[in-house]
C-alpha cells in the first residue's frame, strides 16, 4: 500500500506557493516588464508635467497621480486576471480540485500584485524626485509610506472580489473592462473624488480605495480639502469598507466554488 500524503494543508504555505509561482511566471514572461517597469516611468513624466503648476505640493500630487496610475490596475485587476489565466491554461480545475481553498491561492497572487504595484510606485517616486531635483515636502513621510501600503491593501480587497468573478464566469474580463475607467476615476486614483459631481460620490464611497486615497491626500498635502469628515473619518471608512470587501470575498468564494461545480464551467475559457 502506498501511503497517502495527508500532511496538513497549510493555508499560509499555499498562499506562499501561489505568490512564488506568480513571481516565476512574471520573470518568465518579458511582456510584464512594460506595465510594471516601463509604464511607471512614462506615467511619472506625464504626471510631473500635469501637476507642475499645482502649487507647493505639486510633487506629492504628481507622485500620487502617477503612482496610482501605475499601481491600481496591477493590484486591482492583476488578481482577477490571474484567475482568468487559470481558466485559459486549464489549471483552474486541478487547482480547485486540490485541498487548498482557492481563496488562499488568490491571496498569494494578490500579495504579488501588491508587491509589484509597490515596485511601480517606487519607480514613480525615483523618477519624479530625479526630475524635480529633490524629494517632495511630505509632512509625515512614515505615515505616508504606511498609508501608501494600506491603499494597496484596499485595492487588493476589491481585486479579490474581482477574482471571484473570474472563477464564476469566463466573461469576467468583459465586466472588468467595462468598469475599468469608471472605477479609476470614481475612486480618485488620478484626482480627488470631491472634484467629481456630487451625485457620483455615493457610488465612489462603496469602494475602499476612495476612502484610503482621500486619507492619503489629507496626510500628505497640507490644506487639502477632501471629504468633510477629514483624515480620521476617511481612515475609519477605508478600514471598514476593506473589512467588508474581504468578508464579502470570503463568502463569495465559498458560494462561487459551489456554483461553478454546479455549472461545470471550470474548463471553459
Amino acid at each position: 500500500m502506498m501511503a497517502t500524503a495527508l500532511g496538513r494543508v497549510s493555508r499560509s504555505r499555499s498562499t506562499y506557493a501561489s505568490l512564488r509561482l506568480a513571481v516565476l511566471q512574471f520573470i518568465a514572461d518579458p511582456q510584464w516588464l512594460i506595465p510594471s517597469m516601463i509604464a511607471p516611468v512614462v506615467f511619472a513624466l506625464v504626471s510631473f508635467e500635469l501637476f507642475r503648476s499645482a502649487g507647493p505640493y505639486f510633487l506629492t500630487y504628481a507622485i500620487l497621480g502617477a503612482g496610482m496610475m501605475s499601481m491600481w490596475g496591477q493590484t486591482l485587476y492583476g488578481s482577477g486576471w490571474a484567475t482568468g489565466q487559470d481558466r485559459e491554461f486549464g489549471t483552474l480545475e486541478p487547482t480547485i480540485q486540490a485541498p487548498t481553498p482557492y481563496l488562499y491561492v488568490v491571496l498569494g497572487r494578490v500579495l504579488w500584485n501588491v508587491l509589484s504595484g509597490l515596485i511601480g510606485g517606487a519607480i514613480v517616486y525615483v523618477v519624479i524626485v530625479a526630475f524635480a531635483g529633490g524629494p517632495p515636502a511630505l509632512p509625515d513621510p512614515v505615515g505616508f509610506a504606511l498609508l501608501f501600503v494600506f491603499v494597496m491593501v484596499t485595492l487588493a480587497s476589491v481585486g479579490v472580489v474581482f477574482a471571484a468573478f473570474y472563477v464564476y464566469t469566463r466573461y469576467a474580463g468583459f465586466i472588468q473592462n467595462i468598469g475599468e475607467f469608471a472605477f479609476y476615476i470614481g475612486t480618485g486614483c488620478m484626482f480627488p473624488v470631491v472634484l467629481l459631481p456630487f451625485y457620483t460620490n455615493p457610488v465612489s464611497l462603496i469602494f475602499p480605495p476612495t476612502w484610503a486615497l482621500d486619507a492619503l491626500r489629507y496626510l500628505s498635502i497640507p490644506g487639502y480639502r477632501g471629504f468633510a469628515w477629514g483624515f480620521w473619518g476617511d481612515l475609519l471608512g477605508a478600514v471598514a469598507t476593506t473589512a467588508v470587501y474581504l468578508g464579502i470575498a470570503g463568502a463569495v468564494f465559498t458560494r462561487v466554488e459551489h456554483h461553478v461545480l454546479e455549472e461545470g464551467n471550470l474548463s471553459e475559457y
Binding site: 499555499s14 506562499y16 511566471q25 485541498p99
Partner: peptide, 18 residues
Amino acid sequence: YNRVSGRENLRYFADLYG
C-alpha cells in the same frame, strides 16, 4: 503552467496538497 518548468509545476501542487 507552461511558462515554468515541470519541476516548478510539481512544487506548486505539492504545496497545495500539503
